[in-house]
Design a binder for these strands. Sequence first.
DNA 1: TATCTCGATGTCAGAAACTGACATCGCTGG
DNA 2: CCAGCGATGTCAGTTTCTGACATCGAGATA
Lengths: 192, 192
Amino acid sequence: MGRWEPNARGRLQKAALELYAERGFDATTVAEIAARAGLTERTFFRHFADKREVLFGGSQAMEEHLVKATVSALAQEPGPGPVEAITAALAEMADELFVGEHRSLARHRHAVITAHPELRERELIKMASLAAAVAGALREHGISEPGASLAAEAGTAIFKVAFERWVSAPGDRPLSAFIHETAATLKSVTGS
Amino acid sequence: MGRWEPNARGRLQKAALELYAERGFDATTVAEIAARAGLTERTFFRHFADKREVLFGGSQAMEEHLVKATVSALAQEPGPGPVEAITAALAEMADELFVGEHRSLARHRHAVITAHPELRERELIKMASLAAAVAGALREHGISEPGASLAAEAGTAIFKVAFERWVSAPGDRPLSAFIHETAATLKSVTGS
DNA sequence: TATCTCGATGTCAGAAACTGACATCGCTGG
DNA sequence: CCAGCGATGTCAGTTTCTGACATCGAGATA
């Protein structure tokens, strides 16, 4: 047994999500989160840059997954359009990361985030970072600007709308289904 | 002559933009901004909710303008698709708000904002608020969900990309030209 | 085994962001 | 003339976030 309980980072994430849900984001202090996790405030800030970041630990993995899936979708035959490729990548990522227990976790997280503007801000910049990464991947595979950025932005539009509908939908229809459906709607709304 | 110099709010905005540009966002304190404007820190926070908000005083006007323009575009004959309507609205708004001295101001502002993640966050949530307002207008004019939200998101995608290109383009080609061009690219990238 | 280094955490002090309560004092309406 | 309004000032306090240094178990090494 080590000098400390293992998984400090995970304990902080769990404590933060619980407290934000119980009392609201503004009404919980970092000291309280740390205390619930059996740590100190200073340690919280060693693991997370600020009070918001603690809810976004998974976005790194999401970005890597998405970039990889985009590249692989781009390589399919017959060559899909950029948005088709991103749609496929989003769906694959969703089937990987938004299933099982992640499902209810994602919903709890989303409820907390939408309740607080500062957290929504952080979520938006994570999405933008995702879009930038995807746009970079597209550029490296022959899609030129401004098409690459636009396709990536279209991808985030699809994801945002699909995720919103998935979260508020009853039952257990997979997120990927909403993604495909939403992508089709975007197509119809974009064409005259 | 009143008890105080007039236009405290404007002086704060000017001082903040200057200082953020000179020293960077992190390196300037609210007390310094207030001092340059001949006011106190407490007064700064009466005019602006936080240190970032001082750069986004115009977004209210932009939102109102855009909603109005969207509604009027929707009423054109022959009835345009949702994204066509938003594109027209964006272009009209651009020709109204991003000309003359606003042009260089917008560029300075944008340089400061892109240099600091916290400011980019704020800009993103302003865009999201814009998109929500436009989506609401679309819904009130017969566009159902998820089409309304998707079209609004497509609009922000167009604006973000077009604005980026406009800002970094030499010469004085109007923003509205970039908007129309970008909208066409989105169409081509979305269709297979 | 004895010791050394490393890394995660703790402790402490301090700057800066933000808030609430109350004071000030020209201007304006009666 | 005066009462009250409203923009600003003053002050104290909480919270976020950072830098500097201390602690101490674990694994490596002689």
